[in-house]
């Protein structure tokens, strides 16, 4: 009789651990796909941004709007990181 809880524990724990490991695998698999998509998005949208402290080529560096804003007040469309 005294072995019953231990048997139940063993019968539950091992499959629960296996099932949870399976869910971790699925979640991280989804994460891999999402992060790969973000990497692609970043390369596509930010590849024109020059390294920190360097100026972008003139053609890409046009300020977007706001002619009344001074250069110091408004940063250009192409960001310098």
């Amino acid at each position: 009789m005294s072995d019953a809880p231990e048997r139940l524990r063993t019968a539950v724990l091992a499959p629960a651990q296996e099932a949870f490991t399976g869910s971790l695998h699925v979640v991280t698999g989804i994460g891999a796909v999402l992060l790969a998509a973000v990497a692609l998005l970043i390369v596509t949208k930010l590849r024109h941004v020059p390294p920190v402290g360097q100026e972008a080529p003139a053609a890409e560096d046009a300020p977007e709007t706001a002619p009344e804003a001074s250069a110091d007040e408004r940063r250009p469309e192409v960001a310098k990181v």
Binding site: A39, L46, P50
Partner: peptide, 12 residues
Amino acid sequence: LATKVRPAFLIA
């Protein structure tokens, strides 16, 4: 690192 490599490539 970002002073030498474009941020897009560093982040990606």
